[in-house]
Design a protein around this nucleic acid. Structure first.
Lengths: 121, 121
DNA sequence: CACCGATACAACGATACGGTTGTACGAGCG
DNA sequence: CGCTCGTACAACCGTATCGTTGTATCGGTG
């Protein structure tokens, strides 16, 4: 399954806020309603509610009715999708290191032909 | 080196843009100046320059003089720092699953396909 | 049913962001 | 030495975001 590039935007944007990351962390192990969540932060209830909405739009959390509350639960899948992208970058990096090693190995053997076409403008 | 929570903000914020992620990807394997980078995107040079500045502030890339250009190179370390945070979340998740398994084992009877609705406080 | 606990949502202001164009500077090439 | 390539940076516009307060809604509990 291929994830389109633009899907990452809201996920990383959601993670780019300290408070929202903390909500994600809490919602992994706790079962808190929004009012309970808000009690942890020095901001109004409405702001926390908005942060939760951002996280929900990004797919990082889901809300579920429990009694009269709506408990917030983080969705690991979205976190893994983000991590997979970072893994891809790391793989690219390692592949690049591999290519560099090859180049060095080639030079060690044959000093003659230089294949690196560097455009010197 | 201690990483404070607020250090993640610029990293994730920088990764929250499609173009910037692509610059990161390119700068892993290529050695391009900003003008060359800009040629890949349907926006003005100045915007790409700003994107590069955002990435540089986040520590995701570095610039190095090569000839009259400044080539952009991605800094794997920053990517790994971001990934480590996601790993921590996953670890928390797994720990939580473990705790839930314990609970289910104690109850020994409920079918696990549905979410365990509990507590009405 | 009435009330209240918990959440949703709208309006508003300050600030940041993604994009534009235009100008200025520094350093190599000819 | 001068030109121009590559980059930096400022001013500006529209829109999104983070924060506020106030009001509406929905569902349980008494």
């Amino acid at each position: 399954m291929q994830i389109t590039a633009s899907d990452f935007d809201p996920v990383f944007a959601a993670l780019a806020d300290h408070t929202r990351r903390d909500i994600v962390r809490r919602a992994i192990s706790a079962e808190e309603g929004i009012l309970e969540l808000a009690s942890h932060y020095p901001m109004s209830f409405a702001v926390v509610q908005k942060h939760v909405a951002v996280l929900e739009r990004a797919g990082l959390i889901t809300k579920h009715r429990v009694g009269r509350r709506r408990v917030v639960r983080t969705n690991l899948e979205a976190l893994l999708i983000a991590r997979r992208l970072l893994d891809q970058y790391e793989a690219l990096w390692l592949a690049q290191i591999g290519r560099m090693d090859e180049l060095i190995a080639e030079r060690a053997g044959a000093v003659g032909t230089v294949e690196t076409k560097e455009s010197k403008r």
